[in-house]
């Protein structure tokens, strides 16, 4: 029997370093402003729950929370549908130009997002969509990564499945919906979780396209909160916790599926 305690000791030491910033944030979020700035530090919260109420009063945090939910849900739903449709076609249907078009998709995957931002801004300006939620949603609906990820899942399914369904007279759309989609659920789940994580936290695009606090998502809202409150960390941290808690909770619940998805991108990506 091998001893595992040396591993435990090291892992626990590391875990403390990983957790410390969160614990500190939690404590400070419940402190008074003066306690949070004291030297030596005050290690106990003064249970000032009003910080959480204050942050909702001073910025439209509730509104921003709702915006983030709407944007995240719309993007994730769009990604799941559009990526799976394209991935199914790339993996299971034959048509001229398939390889070439797929190469374009892969090339897009290599390009950093900064190359897209200025023209996208102009598009949104042209449409009169600046400071609207659809400006945040529209570009996020499309993704080469999701198409690539789901294609890998569709490729693993046996060809007999399509053939049998085809003999029964099903068209490709029916095969996609009734036969294939249920079989790639782990892939859809992985993409869905990654998409939620990314769109919930994304900062740069929301920051440039929506400057009206009422139309901001939480990430951009936190940035503007920083501008307003400078070193009022109890308020800033209360806002931070409200903003990041939903994804943390989702992760704790769906941990296995998210980890499996990420590990999959490492082995097959």
């Amino acid at each position: 029997m091998r001893r595992t305690w040396p591993a435990h000791v090291t892992l626990i030491a590391g875990a403390l370093v990983m957790l410390a910033p969160f614990v500190w944030q939690l404590i400070v979020s419940l402190q008074t402003l003066s306690d949070s700035l004291r030297v030596p530090p005050v290690l106990v919260p003064s249970w000032r729950w009003e910080n959480f109420a204050d942050v909702f009063k001073t910025v439209p945090l509730g509104r921003q929370f709702l915006n983030t939910v709407v944007v995240t849900v719309a993007i994730t739903a769009g990604q799941l549908l559009l990526c799976s449709l394209a991935a199914f076609a790339f993996a299971r249907l034959r048509f001229p130009g398939r390889g070439a078009i797929f190469m374009v998709f892969l090339a897009v995957l290599m390009v950093p997002q900064e190359l897209f931002l200025l023209p996208r801004y102009e598009i949104m300006q042209g449409l009169g969509w600046l400071n609207t939620l659809q400006a945040l949603i529209a570009p996020g609906l499309f993704g080469a990564f999701g198409t690539f990820l789901l294609r890998q899942f569709f490729l693993t399914l046996p060809t007999e499945l399509d053939e049998a369904a085809r003999l029964d007279g099903a068209n490709p759309l029916q095969i996609y919906w009734h036969v294939m989609l249920p079989l790639v659920k782990p892939g859809l789940l992985a993409l869905g979780l990654l998409s939620v994580m990314w769109s919930w936290s994304s900062l740069l695009w929301p920051l440039v396209v929506n400057t009206d606090p009422e139309q901001m998502t939480l990430a951009a809202g936190l940035a503007s909160l920083r501008g307003q409150f400078q070193t009022n960390f109890p308020i800033l941290f209360a806002g931070s916790i409200v903003a990041s808690l939903p994804v943390i909770v989702l992760f704790v619940i769906m941990q296995r599926q998210l980890i499996a998805g990420i590990a999959f991108t490492g082995t097959k990506g």
Binding site: A15, M18, P21, F22, S240, I241, A243, S244, F251, I259
Partner: peptide, 15 residues
């Protein structure tokens, strides 16, 4: 160990 990965970078930055 995964907690910082799922925390919004904006919140991480403030902390």
């Amino acid at each position: 160990y995964f907690l910082p990965v799922v925390t919004m970078p904006a919140a991480v930055g403030l902390t």
